[in-house]
Design a binder for these strands. Structure first.
Lengths: 243, 243
DNA sequence: ACATAAATAATGTATAGACATAAAACAGGG
DNA sequence: CCCTGTTTTATGTCTATACATTATTTATGT
């Protein structure tokens, strides 16, 4: 089973063996893996050690366990992928380009005047509305329109967003518990000027909203001219099915 | 700590307590949580029980542990979200519309003539190239261009893709181990006719590739006219930071 | 003061047992 | 044949202990 006697701990080796068998296809979704008792004698260890290995794989979603029946390879149900939502500054500098931020507008709005489609701040709260342009080597890379609830993030009122991008600032300051992303395509339209493209240019639009419990924190719409950017989601996982 | 004495197991309760404290913000990223030894006396249990609770939270990415230093709330680095990649048929019927599939073209190509950007099939392998149109209530919903490696999926050569969409067929037949998704925006261009829109219409483009080990299985490019569709990723999780 | 060695304190791993729990298999009784 | 208990069995949880590992702190020698 484990030809290479690496320096892994025993439970990590058991785990790696099973994970490998699943990823290589030797074990297929729905297959039953040996009982804890069998693995225990097979590896010559205590049941807790086997249990810890299997528990990790259950947590990771590779296995399912049914009492009395045994432990089975999960059939990956919905096709999920880990989507890395990029920090724009990191994305630009990661490409070896020079990043620059421009703050195009900054306003404090009463909650009532905020489009409820974008954010539903608590009654009476104030909302900071920002428009920023991200540039890569001086060329517009993206424009973002952002709302920040000052009820949730009062410190934002005094933060200087001419140097640090609001996204990076929030990333470092405010924890969230829920997030929603919506990805669409649309023409640049009224943002064409700010992006330096034609009005009809196809753009990738990323809407992101975050909450802390019930309280909304921020909503941001980032608009990327189509040619310059794409989102990549890479997934290595349990024998799903190729769609 | 745990006011509601639910029917949870002890390690699950410890875990829930800490998870709750993180999600509610009582514990912030970077904070140190009590040592195992302290939690052990606090809950009146063995260290292994505490350890199991914490190990789960480490696996889930909520905690980080440093020997001799203690256990800390993670500062969530990259912003990840679970993205549900939709099955088009399910998406359409889920909206209460009638789904229909049209097979526009079907060819078998030698590996050498396949754009290596799309797929790198093994030498000498044949590749099935399909173009399909998905319709919702008779209106074009998406066009997909697909390559299927007949080396990896020989059964595809004889499958009837005029009824079942290739995506659904593969979903039911072929397990994968790795997948990559790339999301971009572009004008409809040469697919404008098939989609029934202007050439300049902004479209959402989803490129998906799947592998089984090193062997490529399929590549598909699905093109959605901008107005008709969006991808949604919802994430409830560990005290990340609001970007 | 500075490099080096020893003590310390936290997590990491593992053990051998125990009892709990739930679901499947098996038995009988109607 | 169906329904109902009873037994079996694999996982679920937990304990008390032991030693390993490693980064820090403290002590020590130059």
């Amino acid at each position: 089973m484990s030809l290479d006697d690496t320096n892994l701990s025993l439970h990590a080796r058991i785990r790696a063996d099973i994970e490998g068998a699943i990823l290589s296809g030797t074990l297929k979704p729905g297959d039953r893996i040996p009982f804890e008792h069998e693995l225990m004698t097979q590896y010559g260890c205590a049941r807790m050690t086997v249990n810890k290995a299997l528990s990790g794989l259950v947590e990771a979603g590779l296995l399912e366990r049914r009492r009395r029946a045994g432990t089975f390879v999960s059939r990956p149900q919905i096709h999920m992928a880990a989507l890395a939502i990029p920090d724009i500054q990191a994305e630009v500098t990661g490409r070896g380009q020079i990043y620059r931020l421009e703050l195009l507008s900054r306003d404090v709005l009463p909650a009532a005047s905020v489009d409820p489609e974008r954010m539903r701040p608590p009654r009476g709260a104030k909302v900071l509305a920002l428009t920023c342009r991200h540039l890569a080597d001086g060329v517009p890379f993206a424009v973002e329109e952002r709302l920040i609830s000052l009820k949730a993030v009062p410190e934002a009122a005094t933060a200087d967003f001419t140097e640090v991008a609001p996204g990076s600032w929030l990333l470092a300051h405010v924890p969230w518990t829920e997030a929603e992303h919506r990805i669409t395509a649309a023409p640049a339209a009224r943002l064409a000027g700010a992006l330096g493209v034609e009005e009809s240019t196809a753009c990738l639009i990323l809407d992101r909203r975050t909450w802390r419990g019930d309280q909304p924190i921020t909503h941001v719409r980032q608009v990327f001219p189509g040619a310059g950017f794409d989102l990549v989601a890479r997934f290595t996982g349990a024998g799903g099915a190729a769609a």
